[in-house]
Simulated assay, not measured.
Amino acid sequence: MSLTFTLDPAVTPALRDGILDLWTDVSNAGGAVGFVPPVTPEEVRPELVRQLAGMADGSRRLLVGHDEDGRVAATAFLTFNSHRLMVHWLWLYTVMVHPRHQGKGYGRDLLAAAERAARTFHGIEAIRLTCRGGLGLERFYGSCGYKEVGRIPAAIRVAPDDDRDDVIMLLPLG
């Protein structure tokens, strides 16, 4: 089975709740998506609202993958740069695949769908993302064509005495 991806779906209450559940479940499974476990939906909700507000103002786009049961199984936000000297690349944020789908290749599928989407946006030449060091994510993104272009040591504090590198990755689209 594979996921069905939709760019810019209508944000219904069901979709919003599905993304909230996904984000909470990914975070509680140890996923590096802006939180550390344990986290509740109430803690995640303000960040989701911020992302959805960015969709409303046109600064970001949402890519959603639904599984065969119609449940939200994967997401990524593609965020445009507002700085006039950086509008030729975009950010990929909150790249998530539900833990129940780990190991099925859906992460690669999500990144490929994000790349296809980015190629449809006028003037976009690259995708940039950051990931938390210490989890092997840079190897995963590297295997999907992204190159490590920078690293800020100990920039992410996940707990006292547990600092991780902020790894900057780039996928040129040219």
Rank of each mutant, 00 (worst) to 15 (best):
T130H: 11
P46G: 13
N28K: 13
A29T: 08
V97Q: 11
F77S: 09
L7N: 02
L15S: 10
E42N: 12
Y106V: 04
S143H: 10
T94S: 14
P46R: 13
H98C: 08
G150F: 11
R108L: 03
R119W: 05
G134I: 06
D162K: 15
S82F: 02
I152R: 11
G70I: 02
G30K: 10
E68D: 08
H66G: 02
R116T: 03
V97Y: 08
N28F: 10
D161S: 15
P160T: 14
E115D: 11
G58F: 10
L20T: 05
W89H: 13
G136A: 00
E47D: 13
A118P: 02
A32P: 01
Y106M: 03
A112D: 08
V167G: 01
E43R: 12
V149Y: 12
A74Q: 03
I19R: 01
D163I: 00
V97D: 06
A155K: 04
H83S: 02
D162G: 11
G145I: 07
P13Y: 06
T94W: 13
K104H: 15
A113R: 04
R71F: 01
V39H: 04
H98Y: 09
V39L: 05
S82I: 05
G18I: 08
L111A: 06
E125I: 00
M55K: 07
D67T: 00
G174V: 06
E42K: 14
G134Y: 01
G134S: 08
R164C: 09
S143D: 06
H101E: 14
G103F: 12
I152M: 09
E148Q: 15
T79Y: 04
A53L: 15
Y93R: 10
A74I: 00
D109I: 02
L90D: 06
V33Q: 07
F77D: 07
V36L: 00
H66D: 03
G70H: 00
L3I: 10
R139W: 00
A53R: 15
R61K: 14
F140G: 03
A53M: 14
L110F: 07
G18S: 08
Y146K: 02
S27G: 11
A73H: 05
R16G: 04
D166V: 00
A113C: 07
D8N: 15
G65W: 03
H98L: 10
V11P: 05
S143I: 00
M169W: 04
G142W: 03
L85N: 11
L78I: 15
K104L: 14
V11M: 13
G150T: 12
A114T: 08
D8Q: 14
V44Q: 11
D21A: 15
L111W: 06
Q51V: 04
R151K: 12
A73I: 04
L129Y: 04
P160M: 13
L170E: 13
E68Q: 03
S27F: 10
A118V: 01
S82P: 03
G30E: 06
R45G: 02
E138K: 01
A53K: 15
I152C: 05
V49Q: 14
M86N: 12
D8M: 11
W89N: 05
P13A: 06
G58V: 09
L173P: 05
G142M: 01
C131A: 07
I124G: 04
